[in-house]
Design a binder for these strands. Sequence first.
DNA 1: GATTCGAGACAACTCTTGGC
DNA 2: GCCAAGAGTTGTCTCGAATC
Length: 303
Amino acid sequence: MRKSDLPFGSEFSPSQIELRRVLELAHEHGGDWKAFEAAVRSNYFENHSTDDYSRGKLANNTKLGMIAYGIIDRDASLTDFGKELYEARETEEVLYRLLARHILLHLHGLTLVRCIQDMTVAGEEVNLTTLRDGLAVRGVHYPSGGKHPSMMRLWLAKAGVIVGSRWQVNEAKLKEVLGSDPDDYDLLAGFTTEQRAFLRALCNTGTTTPQPANELARLASMTYGVKFPEKSLPKLVLHALVEAGFIKAEKTTEGRGAKPFLVSPTEKLVAEVVEPLLQQLANQSDPKLLALLKRPLSGILEE
DNA sequence: GATTCGAGACAACTCTTGGC
DNA sequence: GCCAAGAGTTGTCTCGAATC
């Protein structure tokens, strides 16, 4: 079963818990997840008209939601981001803005917002069912029947990014929360999965000298599981990236030639994609994958 | 006022992992 | 291999807003 790309948020919604309070509980019980769960249960679920197991499960789900949102670790200790939230807990406006920004930049929130806007412009109905398809097209998966976007929506609404009781985006608030124009972060959104994976692989090599396009495609396949066309890499991947100004692609033969293009990153790619990308990878990727990505290209290819 | 439908809340299930 | 606990997903019920 494919894991959800959106964070699990059951029992971690502003209508069920108070962010400030759970931050304080994590601060108090960090390192002892059982004590943290017990405290959450005591604060929010002890009087629920259900059995003992379910009360514990609800508290457990709150903890899982906070882990999924990057606020606490497995042992309920506040993460660096959680500590940042904790420090801001006295001012609700700042607290919710920080969380919204985190959701947008690190938890596919911006993809969700863009999806909502695109569907709205296209005159499509926006609900959990249609969103699931819309996000799937953008490479973001969540399970059928899942309420993951709803929980995100509730938190984004707290920061004013989503307004009203439905799926309506406040563009001005979105820019305010991000601190700049969201299009700056949306640079990769217009590319195909293959093009994005190719760019990421190029960024991950950490070198600016020209590299064979076929080897980069191979690296991208290994790290992101994307399949590239064997005979039309330039046409389907490279040309669009060259046109966007993100890469330089040099033909290595005269005429039709059979040798791969040599590809190097442009300054635009380094400035506008590499840094935000590395920031996202640092927050999202499996440590093993990060370790792999940090290794030299040659070493990975040799395996 | 009745009905419908979507979202949220709650509960339970399956799968994975680790200890013995 | 078995069992328990943890992690994550899925199913169902309730509530409220929208519509007729």
